[in-house]
Amino acid sequence: MQLYGLKTCDTCRKALKALPSADFIDVRAQGVPAPVLAAAFARFGQALVNTRSTTWRGLSEEARARDPLALLADEPTLMKRPLIVAGDEMYLGWDKSVQAALWA
């Protein structure tokens, strides 16, 4: 299981604490592999882009209009976090439904 997030993100830290066997990948330092990013975008669509982030608010309208995959590749901190990859399954965020699915 891989958990893509930021080491400074409280939600990512909670998820990692609850999933101690997960491999943590810091998207700021290591990025997200293109195939994983493409699969996540195919699964979650625009929900993968965190439009409430400080990074998003700092972007120009021109930058916001770019292809979401290219934007996430250039600015991985724009990705909603955490992105959890468990085998063939993917989960986005750390709400009760994600927790229930992973602990079932």
Rank of each mutant, 00 (worst) to 15 (best):
Q46R: 11
G87Q: 05
V32M: 07
L78H: 08
T11F: 13
G58D: 03
A38Y: 06
P33R: 07
L19F: 05
Y4G: 00
V36F: 12
L83R: 01
A18E: 14
Q30A: 10
R13N: 15
W56L: 01
R13M: 15
Q2V: 00
R52F: 09
G5L: 01
L83T: 00
R64E: 01
D23H: 08
V32H: 03
R43A: 15
V27T: 01
S21H: 11
S97F: 10
E75C: 10
V32W: 03
R57H: 08
K80E: 10
L6C: 07
V27R: 02
N50F: 02
G5E: 05
T54Y: 05
M1W: 03
A63M: 10
L83W: 01
W103T: 15
L6G: 06
P33G: 08
R13P: 13
A39H: 02
V27W: 01
L16F: 13
A18V: 10
P76D: 10
Q99R: 15
L92K: 05
A18P: 09
G87M: 06
D95N: 15
S97L: 13
A70N: 07
F24A: 00
Y91E: 01
P82T: 08
K7R: 14
Q99M: 11
L72M: 15
W103D: 13
E61L: 08
S21A: 09
E61H: 06
D23K: 09
R28V: 12
G45A: 02
R66N: 10
K14L: 15
A40G: 01
Y91L: 04
F44L: 00
K80R: 15
V32K: 02
T77H: 02
Q2M: 10
A86E: 11
Q2R: 14
R13Y: 12
A73E: 14
W103L: 15
V98C: 08
C9E: 10
A18M: 07
A65F: 04
W94V: 12
L69R: 03
S53M: 10
M90K: 03
M1F: 05
T77K: 14
C9M: 12
W94I: 09
R52C: 08
P68M: 03
F41H: 14
E61Y: 02
A73I: 03
L59I: 05
R66P: 07
N50S: 09
A101R: 14
D26K: 04
L92M: 07
R13V: 15
Y91N: 00
Q2N: 12
F24M: 06
P35L: 12
T77C: 10
K14E: 14
A70C: 08
W94D: 02
R52A: 14
F24R: 04
L83I: 04
L48K: 06
D23G: 12
K7G: 13
L69K: 03
Y91G: 02
T8W: 12
F41M: 11
C12K: 08
A18Q: 13
A22V: 03
Q30C: 03
L6Y: 13
M1K: 02
V49S: 04
D74V: 09
C9F: 11
M1D: 03
V85G: 02
W56V: 01
V36Y: 11
Q46N: 06
T51N: 08
A70G: 14
L59F: 09
T8Y: 12
A86N: 08
